[in-house]
Amino acid sequence: MVKEIIKEAENNMKKTIEVVKKEFASMRAGRATPALLDKIMVNYYGTPTPINQLANITVPEARLLVIQPWDKSSMPEIERAILKSDLGITPASDGTVIRLAIPQLTQERRADLMKVIKKKAEEGRVAVRNVRRDTNDHLKAAQKDGKISEDDLKRNQDEVQKLTDRMIKDIDSILSTKEQEIMQV
């Protein structure tokens, strides 16, 4: 029973780290990546649809994204969705493809991005700590019910703390990688 509680905590913490990675991937760091468009939803025949389900997205150059819709009639809606998004990029269309030129980041924009990624990383750390708290609550309840001894409780809480420290360290390393990517000129 205790092993399942700790295993579930580890899985939840790993899911949190995946969320942080996705958040970071969708943030513009001066380099073109299809993940920038992951959060953008296009109104396709009245249904909000992700761009990657409507078009082929390629990166022919380091600072250029090319979106080639499978249905040419969806191009205006894709352009509109990109303009409404918080990317701050104006799409250029030639009738068959949409080009997104990723501009160089200004020093001010880099500072803003640093604040945002630090906030996202802290949210991830808080989520990991919340999983730790919930797991420790489950362990205490198991001890209260007489399912585990006080020594087992302490041992398992130490194991959960080590797991938490490892996951927070992972978030910190992901954060430092993204910081380097953003500050790279």
Score class of each variant (00 low, 15 high):
P34R: 11
L36H: 01
D152C: 11
R166A: 11
I168G: 12
I17C: 14
K39D: 13
L105P: 02
I57V: 11
L36I: 04
I82D: 01
I6R: 11
I51G: 00
L65A: 01
V185L: 13
I67K: 02
A55S: 09
L139M: 13
P91W: 00
D94S: 08
I57S: 02
S85I: 00
Q184K: 15
P103M: 01
G30D: 03
M41C: 13
S173N: 13
S26K: 08
M27D: 05
K21Y: 13
A111T: 10
V66R: 02
A55K: 02
K169V: 14
G124R: 01
P50D: 04
N156Q: 13
S85R: 01
N43E: 15
L65C: 01
D151E: 13
T47I: 07
E179A: 14
M75P: 14
L113M: 09
V128M: 09
K21D: 09
P60K: 13
P34W: 14
L65S: 00
I17V: 14
L83N: 07
L175Y: 03
N11D: 06
I168F: 08
V160T: 14
L105I: 04
I51L: 05
V97M: 04
L65Y: 00
I57P: 00
R110Y: 10
L139E: 03
A121F: 07
K3F: 09
I117F: 06
I82V: 15
N156W: 12
I89S: 01
K154Q: 12
I67D: 01
D137Y: 15
D112Q: 10
D71E: 13
L87W: 02
E150Y: 10
G95T: 07
S85N: 02
R28M: 05
Q143M: 14
M183P: 08
A121D: 04
P50S: 06
R166Q: 08
K147Q: 14
M114D: 09
A55D: 03
K115Q: 09
